[in-house]
Design a protein around this nucleic acid. Structure first.
Lengths: 331, 331
DNA sequence: CGGTGTCAAGACTTCGTAGTCATCTGGTGG
DNA sequence: CCACCAGATGACTACGAAGTCTTGACACCG
């Protein structure tokens, strides 16, 4: 037994399909008693409008794609960023009555599928999350004419509106805090440089050190704990005298803490550590992590609102959210 | 200028719509030269089949819903479980050529929307993630006749196939490990008891202690770090002599470690700690966490495959994945 | 050489809904 | 009392693609 259709409801209620359609869509020009009868038939038959038919005729899907770049190797597997951003964005979308299509953009072949998927009209708009600079997807999507926004600034400017946090300001505050404490040899663990946020945080670090005539000590990570641990090892090799580290995100700071512990360095007495993001785990490290709070959840929600605005108005302005330093015990 | 349709391609190629359709869908009964001409027209016009129209006529959507219960307060915000499960499941679905609809089931009102959404035929099947025992959604969905599977066993048995890990065996191994070390007063921090996994882990703990004539010392958590920290505080109050704790998941173990540190207890010398799940963060605690590995990513992938099997065959058998203890330094 | 079987291509129908347009009803004003 | 109007209802078509059915062409066989 198949699902009832508009037609079945109309037959059951003894009215035309048009009237049923009007009742379903809440149009005011329908007599109360007809509405009554129709509603009765609807509940009786358990009628629910067919989504595909609706999408076809209205040319709308009421669905928004969240497109997350997915590293092939399965890196960053339990990424708190992913959880927070996807969750917050989904909530905001559901609150706006939109459905969510989650799209992982991994291999080249999957990217083609993404493109096809969006071109097929399955969604009304899309939100890009953490695209690296070398990714061609943003440019491709921008060209399709589909409303798209980005969570985080893109390497290529002007393609689409975005919401980002103040990476430059935040990283500057982090390094400044270390300077204020009188730290002399301040190293940094950078994120993957094809990501804009990593670039900006590194630039801020460099600039802040340059302003005080110090030299940069940089190790490269990829925003994972393990990479932070390895980078810290390398930094200790390079400069055993260092007395402070600014990690470009908290996960790498956590990795760095572990390496420091293993190397017998006390934090913060021997080496001060500052992270970035203020994920929940930063409260539970030993010692608790001094870090820069970037409101990831709010950033995601704002990105969604930006997209909704773009959908409604045809245009929307990018937003930069402020960051603040959270001082705990690690620095 | 609108997107081209099948009709437009047919006109451009000088053939009928049927032939274009055949080419698009890769039917073999089409002459090579016609295929050639059609493909040329397709690329020339940039034609992509309209999804809604396709869904309407085929009565398939090629889309699977991942339904995650979303705590109203925004608890478990950076939940590694969410990231791993959603990511792994999405990958597996994309590999199978399915699209992913992410659905957060929060408030009662949103649950009604979920029901409507599924009834509207937007998806071919659904995967439920971490539903608590009191949730009516699984029963509702099972009744709709939509193919549904569960990630994690449900409180009400028989509603749908599921994939779970061996909570009982894992928790037993964890407690046994503590017993083997000669620990005398072994407490536990339980998860929320309306979740099946929490129940099973608690039961295993109780049974294991009972077998050795010890009494249970239980504090209640909700699988978050903060609840683990609070529960640990309570346990220390209740029994300052305790020398071991089994936390029902790693996040709570991390919280417990922090409380123990603040209370001046050494781990593992004074108090041994064992967690559950073996999330990546367990490698980075001080000291590294002894825990029970539950293959969350694989569990998610298997759950997806279970659903695909259900879709294909009309039936599928539940699976229990083995767990193993991972001994590090905390116990 | 006519009939038949085969295979490809085109015409037509279907899916379930929304929107357009025509129709009908009852009421009102001239 | 009639014409007209507003408002509500019903008939009909578009949306875009897939599948069914039919037609047409060709070759092979008797």
């Amino acid at each position: 037994m198949r699902r009832p259709t508009l037609h079945a409801v109309a037959a059951r209620a003894g009215v035309s399909k048009s009237s049923v359609s009007r009742v379903i869509n809440g149009e005011p020009t329908v007599a109360p008693e007809i509405r009554q009868i129709v509603m009765a038939a609807v509940t009786e038959l358990g009628y629910v409008p067919n989504g595909a038919a609706r999408n076809l005729v209205t040319q709308k899907t009421n669905t928004i794609a969240i497109i997350v770049s997915d590293p092939p190797a399965g890196l960053v597997s339990d990424d708190p960023m992913f959880a927070m951003v996807v969750r917050a964005a989904s909530r905001e979308l559901e609150a706006a009555g939109k459905q969510v299509a989650l799209v992982l953009a991994g291999s080249d072949e999957s990217r083609r599928r993404v493109e096809q998927y969006l071109a097929a009209g399955h969604v009304d708009g899309a939100m890009l999350v953490s695209m690296d600079g070398s990714d061609p997807l943003p440019a491709v999507l921008a060209r399709t004419g589909l409303p798209v926004v980005s969570h985080g600034r893109l390497a290529t400017p002007g393609l689409m509106p975005y919401v980002d946090n103040d990476n430059l300001g935040g990283a500057t505050k982090a390094v400044q805090h270390l300077l204020d404490q009188g730290r002399q040899r301040i190293a940094t663990i950078s994120g993957p440089l094809d990501m804009q946020a990593a670039q900006e945080r590194l630039n801020a670090y460099r600039q802040a050190l340059k302003d005080t005539g110090r030299r940069s000590i940089v190790a490269l990570g990829d925003f994972t704990r393990i990479s932070g641990a390895e980078a810290m090892r390398q930094l200790l090799d390079d400069d055993p005298q260092l007395d402070a580290v600014f990690a470009a995100n908290d996960l790498m700071a956590i990795g760095a803490l572990r390496t420091l512990r293993e190397a017998g360095r006390r934090v913060p007495e021997d080496v001060a550590v500052v992270g970035f993001d203020d994920i929940e785990a930063a409260l539970y490290t030993a010692p608790p992590l001094t870090t820069v709070r970037s409101p990831m959840g709010e950033q995601a929600a704002r990105t969604v609102r930006l997209l909704l605005e773009l959908l409604a108005n045809g245009s929307a302005d990018s937003v930069i959210l402020p960051t603040e330093i959270v001082i705990r015990e690690s620095a």
